[in-house]
Each structure stands twice: as structure tokens, then as C-alpha cells.
Nucleic acid binder design. Structure first.
Lengths: 116, 116
DNA sequence: GCCATGCATCCGCATATGCGGATAGATAGC
DNA sequence: GCTATCTATCCGCATATGCGGATGCATGGC
């Protein structure tokens, strides 16, 4: 039963729910989440570490950058919950705002990269 | 997002997961859970209160006795999770032990009631 | 090689939360 | 009315956990 509780503890903070919701839209790195959630780097990094440790996310490193995404090979509980998460988020205004902020951020990020 | 986190926080303790798992088998009162989980009355009562507050359970009072059960009219998240909980518990040895302990307890309880 | 950047981890602090015993309130039997 | 029983809540204690700034490590550009 402790593993079920640990998995649920992984999503028991609003910040981590927002993060996992944003990762539903695609893999992201720490600075993406910093920009959208408007939080310090250590706060984001610690929560990402927690999500990974409790089975919700995976990461890959590419040079200095680390990209986080949903854990598609997670346990049965995580797979089932992640399958349903989009329905739970439907109509959620905070998520809609985060999604918009992410879209704006990614658009700016791409334009900055192009201008370099 | 905070409501999703609150719901997950409701099941983030092993004791509460064990309680909600036992309620899957039928409605129970505090003394049933005391007997099965072998924990003090105040511990059980506090966790039951938490589960109710976070939308997982309902209760009905009958004289001195209060009976707790799954909240069938809960929010979408709780309904979906409670639908899947039995599959997550499949093969869980701790739950199997709790279930056996409950069966023994209820058998004894019924026999005691009959002998009065 | 130096410096900038991205990220993980530590630190000290503050808040949240679980614990069991004790207590209080409600119910019911005598 | 008294006593027993069931349950909710409080108390003091201890542990868990989130916070942001600082620090350290790895990577990459120049």
C-alpha cells in the first residue's frame, strides 16, 4: 500500500500537478517551467526530482539541458492516472492559463533561437 | 489545480490507502477498522475525517454507530480513481492480509451479536 | 582556459501533518 | 439518572516537507 501512497504523494502538491499537466503538452526543461510557473529554479528542480522519484516522469539530458516528460513506462497506477488526467483538466482555468503562458514562452524561445 | 492536489493528498498516506481499500469491500465503522488495522481509535477517526474532507468517503450515523463507505457521488477524479483501485490492489499482499483480517473480524462480530 | 548557462543539491527556516492519549459529546441500556 | 460505548476533537510532541537563496558540478561557447 505504501507504493500507492507514494505515487499519490507525488501529485499532492499543486505545483507538481501544474508541472505534470504542462508535461502533458510535451516534454519541457526547467527554464520552460520557470517561465510558465514564475518560480525559482531550485523550486522547479526539486519538484521535478520528486515527480521522477515517485514514478510520474522521465528525463533525458542533452548537453547542459535536461528534458522532462511523462513516464510512459510507469507502473499501472501512473499510466491509468496519466490517461485520465486530460479529462480532469478539461475546463480547468488555471491549466488553460498555464497552457497559454507556455505557448507564448515557446513562441518567444523559438524566435530568439532563430535570431541567434 | 489545488483541488486535484487535495484529492491526491487524501490518499498520500498508507493508512488512508488501506482504509479506502477496505471500504471497497463494504461500509465499515471505526471499530471495524481499529480491529483490522490494529490502530488506536483516534488515529482511525482522524484519517476517516481526512478522507471525507478530501472527497473520498461518505458516512451515515445510526445511533451511536457511524458507517463509512466510498463516495459514489464524488467528483470525476474520485470516481475514476475508485473505479480503478481494485485493479491496482490486485496481487497486493498487504491488502489480501487486511481483507482476511476483516473477514475474521466480521465473522466474530456477527457471532458475538447473535449470542447476545 | 575562462566564463556563462543549466541543473542538482544543500542550508536554514517555516509550515504542514501524523501520532496516541486524553477529553468531550452523543447515544443507548438499565 | 447513571454508566458504558462510540466517535470527534484537542493537546503536546515529533517528523515530514516546501521555500528561496546559495553553492557546486557539468556542459558548451569563445
Amino acid at each position: 500500500m505504501e507504493n500507492i501512497a507514494e505515487a499519490f504523494k507525488g501529485l499532492s502538491e499543486p505545483v507538481r500537478v501544474r508541472i505534470i499537466a504542462l508535461l502533458y503538452l510535451g516534454e519541457l526543461c526547467v527554464c520552460d517551467l520557470m517561465a510558465v510557473l514564475d518560480m525559482p529554479q531550485s523550486t522547479i528542480s526539486r519538484h521535478l526530482s520528486y515527480l521522477k522519484r515517485t514514478g510520474w516522469t522521465l528525463s533525458r539530458r542533452k548537453g547542459k539541458w535536461v528534458y522532462y516528460r511523462w513516464n510512459g513506462n510507469a507502473g499501472r497506477l501512473q499510466r491509468d492516472v496519466l490517461d485520465m488526467l486530460p479529462e480532469w483538466l478539461a475546463g480547468n482555468k488555471e491549466f488553460a492559463a498555464d497552457r497559454n503562458a507556455l505557448a507564448v514562452h515557446l513562441k518567444n524561445k523559438t524566435e530568439e533561437a532563430c535570431s541567434d
